[in-house]
């Protein structure tokens, strides 16, 4: 794919991000719930003046269209605004948490693929056998249970009972990791910190299983059905006729071709994993973006929700783009 096309596609993300932000902006201001009320809590006295002052600080006393104008003009300058409750710029809040979310998404994707690939290939090769049914049933197990429930059960078994893996957090406090990118495993490798690598890996496993097991089913079934289709194609029959061994046929010819539809699904799942992890993040006290957004929704922290949703929209567009790039790589016949 040519670079120009990639840039073009990235630019196409802008109207989507903007549209998403405006929808959230209008939606949040039309619905009940006053951020100032929530901020003040119960303690002490709150004077009318104090409430008014906070309102005007947040521009909540102005008509919606004026607020929207202010928001858009800030946005044009690249300013996402400041969080109501956290007294910090939204961009820095999101920036601090994004690496944790990305790390978890990739951990989950890895676990998902680790389960999906053997299952998908085996069940296609042994279609309708007991193995096929068993393994597909197992693959579907992950998608059939609420992730928080799976997470808590994993914690109780592997952390509380067996003491194999930690309950919560991203890394041990005394691992002495020097952060570079915020992706702890990558940072451990970059700084050559072995204990930190082991520690962050151990912390990543359980949340990745809780989140990634749902991906396994989706990927496995796509892989299985595309493999089934390909294994019957003339192309594979030809390879067989040429006397290639079954393993070679499957691994070399069929799987590569089956990867094309699989990659599409995987790409979409990356978006889902990045935007659907708030529950697993809460269960494992994973300091990521999802938890931050849910908290912001409950606190009516308008700027934070707007900013985060724009980030999600960007991730979604970017994931689609990556899928398309991979597509052309796997199948050079396709032009964008």
């Amino acid at each position: 794919m040519r670079l120009v096309k990639v840039i073009e596609r990235l630019l196409a993300a802008i109207p989507i991000m903007l549209g998403v932000a405006v929808i959230v902006f209008v939606f949040m201001r039309m619905t009940p719930g006053d951020p100032v009320d929530i901020m003040m809590g119960q303690g002490g006295t709150v004077s009318e003046g104090e409430v008014e002052r906070l309102r005007s600080e947040f521009n909540l006393d102005k008509p919606i269209h004026v607020q929207l104008g202010l928001f858009l003009s800030d946005l044009a300058r690249g300013d996402l605004g400041n969080s109501f409750t956290k007294q910090q710029p939204v961009a820095s809040l999101i920036g601090e948490r994004l690496p944790a979310t990305i790390e978890l998404a990739f951990g989950s994707l890895f676990i998902g693929l680790l389960i999906a690939f053997p299952i998908g290939i085996l069940s296609a090769v042994k279609q309708n056998s007991l193995l096929d049914r068993l393994s597909m049933g197992a693959a579907f197990l992950g998608i059939s249970m609420p992730s928080f429930w799976l997470g808590i059960i994993l914690i109780l078994i592997f952390s509380v009972k067996l003491h194999w893996l930690p309950v919560q957090g991203r890394i041990d406090y005394d691992a002495g990791l020097q952060t570079v990118t915020g992706l702890y495993m990558l940072d451990s490798i970059l700084t050559g910190n072995g204990p930190a690598l082991i520690s962050s890996l151990k912390h990543l496993i359980l949340p990745s299983i809780a989140l990634g097991s749902a991906v396994a089913a989706i990927v496995a079934r796509v892989l299985r059905s595309s493999l089934l289709e390909i294994l019957r194609s003339d192309y594979v029959k030809l390879a067989r006729a040429k006397g290639a061994g079954e393993t070679t046929v499957v691994m070399k010819h069929a799987v590569r071709n089956a990867l094309i539809p699989t990659v599409t699904v995987v790409g979409l799942q990356v978006g889902v994993l990045l935007g659907g992890n708030m529950i697993v993040e809460t269960v494992f006290s994973w300091p990521g973006l999802g938890r931050l957004v849910v908290e912001a929704i409950f606190n009516r922290d308008f700027p934070l929700v707007q900013g985060a949703v724009m980030v999600y929209a960007f991730i979604f567009v970017a994931a689609n783009l990556v899928v398309d790039v991979l597509y052309t790589y796997l199948n050079p016949k396709i032009e964008m």
């Binding site: 808590i152 914690i155 109780l156 952390s159 509380v160 003491h163 930690p166 309950v167 919560q168 957090g169 809460t282 269960v283 494992f284 006290s285 300091p287 938890r291």
Partner: peptide, 16 residues
């Protein structure tokens, strides 16, 4: 910060 009560209890039980 461990907002989820069941996780908090598990973390105590696991000695974390």
């Amino acid at each position: 910060v461990i907002p989820e009560a069941s996780t908090r209890v598990a973390a105590l039980l696991a000695g974390e």
